[in-house]
Each structure stands twice: as structure tokens, then as C-alpha cells.
Design a protein around this nucleic acid. Structure first.
Lengths: 232, 232
DNA sequence: ACAAGTTTTCGACCTATAGTCGATAACTAT
DNA sequence: ATAGTTATCGACTATAGGTCGAAAACTTGT
């Protein structure tokens, strides 16, 4: 292999809110190094393949994930010894899937709540940390919640989703007011039938857009009236 | 060259505020492809070299930039034909230098205001766009201005720096109040002698920290009292 | 029916952040 | 002294967002 030439892998940090907990998809290694530890799904970049497509391809192959609601590049790790065997650069992607998407998983693959991560291989634990940071930030200033929520949902369900992803309690009142004012969510004409134990039926909401939109741009030092949502 | 093996380059988007305008360092190409067009400084990654170090090394070699006040990874471009000769992955870095740092530039290298970019080679124009976006956002919620401002400065000078980087007018009153309240800047005991045409002497300020600190974290949906500055 | 329990929804209040504007301070030059 | 210039500061306002409790709309049990 020529000296100035490197293998490159795409890794996916796939998040899904399962049972009110933010969880990440991990594969258990069967061989050294890091035998028995868990790793992010991913694999090598091919010639003529883009990194985003490579991440999607490996996720589809490894976990048969039907549809990824959102995929964005996180960062590239370049520590020469991050893989003890040979040098491999890694570009991590943040991938979000909605609760409806039930993937058929191989035996070595499982969801793990991010608060109880098992021992992780390589630098994957810190990559998961970066992904959580990115997700938390974007939940606050974009409509990225659409990629974690089902097609329609009640405010309570959305509150649980946000609380799981943000890692702290969220007020349903606040969430409803802020997201409707920003135009991120909108009510449908449907309501749920009341829960098993009774209670008022909840109106069903949906996300106004399923494309990523920056709805609360950083506005410091900006003159009044200059604001406005930007599509990314 | 093996098939699953790629060259990789580190590119630097070096910003400096010059003459009240945000400017970027570019090198003019002497050979095809894109002969005569301007490109970002950078070069190939070496074995056993990290990407950040590679970006720094190429900047030091190409432009003899004395000190880079801030360097952070932006994104990795992987379009197979972004370089028409052979496939090269590129990881872009945002680099900021203070106005005091006067680099000795080779003949083919020059500063260009970002509002009047010359024709750019490869995908470098869009990379510069990404870098501007990142800088604008971070000026609003971090203390990153330290990397664009001199050691000490007046509020008016800082206003000009922020206005240049943000691309819109900035109120000195607002800037002073917000940045002092956040603890980003603090007054020194010195004042300037008045300007040539007279006027009240201005107190000199300095940045409280020259490490990147998130001073205005995204706070939506967070319970009261949970906030707090985070070091990155 | 009616009361009690549950969940949702909404209004009212309050605080913090930040944009605007004008008055005042502190200098130079004539 | 007076005018011009720049800096600084307080007051006002707008808005986003956190908190709380009341009211609405159901179910279940008596």
C-alpha cells in the first residue's frame, strides 16, 4: 500500500427512542481486537462511493434498517492508532430512525440505552458522545424531532421523545407552545381515544416538514426583523 | 494503488478580519486543473499524521502563518470526482487568526474578502460557505471572538470585528452588555488615548478566556436553573 | 346519575434575554 | 467657551420561554 494512502470507514450512530429511552444500535465483536466489546455499525468506503452513501449501505446491510429518517455527517477521526491493526480513518454519521421502523437484527446486533452503554471498541464510545451532543443541540434549534417521532403523535408522546433524547424532563405545555409558534408542529383534526385508564382524548399533531429546517437560528447581535428560518 | 484506499487532504479555511472585512487566505493555481483559479491552502495527509496536525503543518508551510488562534474540524468532502485527476477525500478545517498576526505570504497567496471571492477551484467555494456559517453560529453562542480580536480592544473595535464576521451591523451597546453579562469579555484598567479627531477615550477590554467556551447553550425545553457554561 | 380519578389543554404570570434610543460623559479642535 | 466626536450607560420595549393552576374531556366505580 502506498504510504500516503489510507483506508476509510463510515460509521453510523443510529439513534431510536425505545421505551422512553434513547438507544443506539451496536454490534458485538466476535474477534480481536476488542473481542466481545460493542462497536458502531459501519464499514469500509468503496471506490466511487460517497461517505454518506457508504454509511447508508452498511446500515442497510448490517441491520436491515428499513428507512433512515435523517442522516448527517458528524466528524472524522484520524488518530493513527485508533485501530491497532492498521490505520483507518473514520467518518461518523448521525442517523435517526422513527419508532415505527422495527429493524430485523442479526444475532450480534442490539439496541442499547445510551445511559447504560456496554464496553465499546475503538473510539466508538466518544463518537457516541459527540452524536448525543449534536442531537441535543439540534433538537433545540431545528425541527429534527421529526426523525425521532412517528407520523402523528400526541403532545405527551412527543414530550417523552424529547425528554429521552435531551436527557432531562420536558414540560408538555412549553413544548406545545414553542413548537407550534415556530411552525414546527401542527395539529391534525384527529384525536386519540382516551388511554386505558381514562383521561381526556389528546389531539394528534404532525411535523409540518420532514426536511431539516433551522427554526430558531442563533440571533444574538442581529438587528430586529432580520431573522427568518433557513433550510439546510 | 489498492481499490479501497484513498488519498486524503486537509484544507484550511483561514479567516482574518482585515480592514473591517472578513477575509480568507487563498492560493492561486499555476497549473491545470482550474489553472488561474484560487484554492484553499492545504495538502495531503501523511502516514502517522492526524488531520488537525496536517492542516496546521500545511498552513505553516504554505503561508508562514505565525499562530493560529483557533482550529476546528468542519466537514469531510467525499465526492469521487471532486478532483478530476484522481479521487481525493478532503477534510476542511476552520482556522482563525488575530489581526496582529501578519503572515509573510508567497507571491501566489493572498487574502480575499469573502464577499468578493475570485473563481475558486474544486469545491472550495462551497467549503468557504460552510466555514462562514460555522463562524457566524459560534460567534452567537461561544466566546470564539477571541480568535479574531487582538489582545486588548475597545468595544467599537470589537463591534467592527463582529460586524465583519457576521455580515450585518452590530450595536455596540448590545455587544458590550451581552458579552460582559456572559462573562466573555472584561474591562481592563487601561483606556485608549482619544482618536485623532477627538472623542472620549475608550476603556480597553480583553477576552476572559482564550479557550473555546460555550457561553450561551441552547436552552430550549430545559428546566430553570439547569443551565451553565460548558467547555468544549 | 354522580363522584372520583386521569390526562389533556389552555390561560395567566413571571423571568431572562436582547434590540433600540436618547441622554450624558470625556475628550479634541477652533 | 463652544462645537464636534466618540464612548458609555440607563431606560424602555419586545419576545422567548419556564411555571403553575384551573378547566376540559374522558373513564371507572358506586
Amino acid at each position: 500500500m502506498p504510504p500516503d494512502c489510507f483506508r476509510h470507514e463510515a460509521l453510523g450512530v443510529v439513534f431510536q427512542v425505545r421505551d422512553k429511552r434513547l438507544s443506539v444500535l451496536l454490534c458485538q465483536r466476535a474477534e480481536p481486537p476488542f473481542e466481545g466489546a460493542w462497536m458502531l455499525p459501519g464499514g469500509l468506503l468503496l471506490a466511487d462511493e460517497r461517505l454518506g452513501a457508504s454509511a447508508g449501505r452498511h446500515l442497510a446491510a448490517k441491520a436491515d434498517i428499513p428507512e433512515i429518517a435523517h442522516l448527517e455527517q458528524l466528524e472524522t477521526r484520524s488518530d493513527p492508532v485508533r485501530d491497532p491493526r492498521e490505520r483507518v480513518l473514520a467518518t461518523a454519521y448521525l442517523a435517526l430512525v422513527t419508532p415505527g421502523a422495527r429493524a430485523r437484527l442479526p444475532a450480534d446486533t442490539a439496541w442499547h440505552p445510551v445511559d447504560e452503554l456496554p464496553p465499546c471498541a475503538f473510539d466508538h464510545r466518544s463518537i457516541i458522545g459527540s452524536a448525543r451532543e449534536r442531537l441535543r443541540a439540534k433538537l433545540s434549534y431545528t425541527n429534527i424531532g421529526f426523525a425521532l417521532a412517528p407520523e402523528t403523535f400526541t403532545i405527551s408522546q412527543l414530550r417523552d421523545t424529547y425528554a429521552a433524547a435531551l436527557g432531562h424532563p420536558v414540560s408538555a405545555t412549553n413544548l406545545q407552545r414553542i413548537l407550534t409558534r415556530r411552525g414546527v408542529i401542527e395539529p391534525t383534526s384527529d384525536v386519540t381515544r382516551p388511554a386505558a385508564s381514562g383521561g381526556r382524548p389528546a389531539t394528534l399533531y404532525r411535523f409540518a416538514s420532514r426536511e431539516l429546517v433551522v427554526t430558531n437560528p442563533f440571533a444574538a447581535f442581529r438587528p430586529r426583523g432580520t431573522a427568518g428560518a433557513l433550510t439546510v
